[in-house]
Design a binder for these strands. Structure first.
Lengths: 225, 225
DNA sequence: CATTGTGAACGCCTTCACAGCC
DNA sequence: GGCTGTGAAGGCGTTCACAATG
């Protein structure tokens, strides 16, 4: 169904969109004109039925017998994700992770741009990273006030995360990515995602410790054996 | 059922184990003797039924009318995850992200220890970070050979990720965490997890761009994958 | 009487399989 | 013939609700 409205997109589908987008970007760069669902599936590490079902949530983009026009589909997906507009990222907590994120080059190609960096350590204020000055956290409201599509990134220690989160919410930030190992509480109207290095390591440890539990249907991760 | 064997743990349950573990660690530190499933659920950002069902996969650890003994449950979960033994982490790709990961302090408390750092840039070889020298990637097999429970971390650019991945696999590493924005292929016997900053930002962007699609049942206020 | 452990119902995503179209 | 879009079937995790228990 290609109904522009009334759709509810399954969360797993939303997670795969960026992966399709990246795969299509590579195909487009290589000048490939069309892809079949099977080819795109392989590039994204999923199966073909999933690709077709996922895309069908947004529209009828393919041509039976041919596949999908790479550039057209790429444009559609980028528009769906919202990558046709620029997103402004503010990073709070300029430890080594904050610095690494600020320097990350993945912003530009995807229309994400780091626009402000914050910390509370007086020794860091004024320092410049990636062409941006590090400001004191107290300046956050004033800076964020002038931003339309902002995303907050929390790269502080766990103990400061909820406070920083609250300040971001109070300043009007509606989406946040939290790297601190803490469970945060936000209003329903705010999007929050968690990225946790330690949790990932523990999941890996679990599966090594329990080879028999090794999770089920592998779309990707194949090859030898 | 508390059957020690023959269990297949749902993947979502595995992902929540580290979160329970962290919450219990905090409770234990605070000297709290027991928790109910409802309390633990709140701390972990999930609901009580999920906590009980999750724990029931591993054993009968609770006491009706009382709840769970914090220290006992903590010990059981840490043992299940495999945190009762030390895991040795090797990091490949010492850009700013690699450095940040190497300096991360979350290792120690969770029995993960960075033991070797690699890169291919001659200018970086020999440099020291977090008390460890940066070695050339060619030394990887020799170093890893002497390690029992190793986890590989890939923090290279996307174009190098699959090559590094192959080298890690060839060296006997059975679990890897990939930060590069690339879909990797590994043998079934190898655990692979993906952490992707860009994908997370895009998911956030999607949900802001589609408030009506804002995903479903929030336990507390979500954390993510 | 508060709280656990769990079978059963439910809902949702995945996978199948095929009609329809190029 | 090749491939998409999709209803239907299947699989699996979540939630419910309650008997069992200290």
């Amino acid at each position: 169904m290609a109904d522009r409205f009334a759709r509810r997109i399954p969360e797993p589908t939303v997670f795969r969109l960026p992966v399709y987008q990246r795969a299509l970007l590579a195909l487009s760069t290589d000048g490939v004109p069309t892809v079949s669902s099977a080819e795109l599936a392989e590039a994204a590490g999923v199966n073909a039925a999933k690709v077709r079902k996922d895309l069908s949530h947004f529209g009828t983009y393919g041509t039976p017998g041919t596949g999908y026009d790479v550039n057209f589909l790429l444009g559609q997906i980028r528009r769906e994700i919202g990558l046709d507009r620029e997103w402004q990222v503010v990073i709070v907590g300029m430890g080594s992770l904050g610095h690494a994120l600020a320097r990350s080059q993945r912003f530009s190609t995807q229309n994400f741009r780091a626009v402000a960096l914050f910390d509370i350590d007086p020794a860091k204020i004024g320092e410049e990273t990636a062409g941006l000055p590090i400001r004191h956290l107290s300046e956050l409201p004033a800076i964020v006030a002038g931003i339309s599509r902002s995303i907050g990134v929390i790269a502080t220690p766990a103990c400061a995360a909820q406070d920083v989160c609250n300040r971001l919410v109070a300043s009007g930030v509606r989406a946040m990515l939290n790297f601190a190992p803490a469970i945060l509480t936000v209003p329903h109207s705010v999007q929050l995602r968690q990225v946790d290095f330690s949790v990932e390591l523990q999941v890996l440890a679990f599966y090594i410790a329990h080879p028999e539990a090794t999770a089920g249907p592998e779309d990707a991760s194949r090859s030898g054996l």
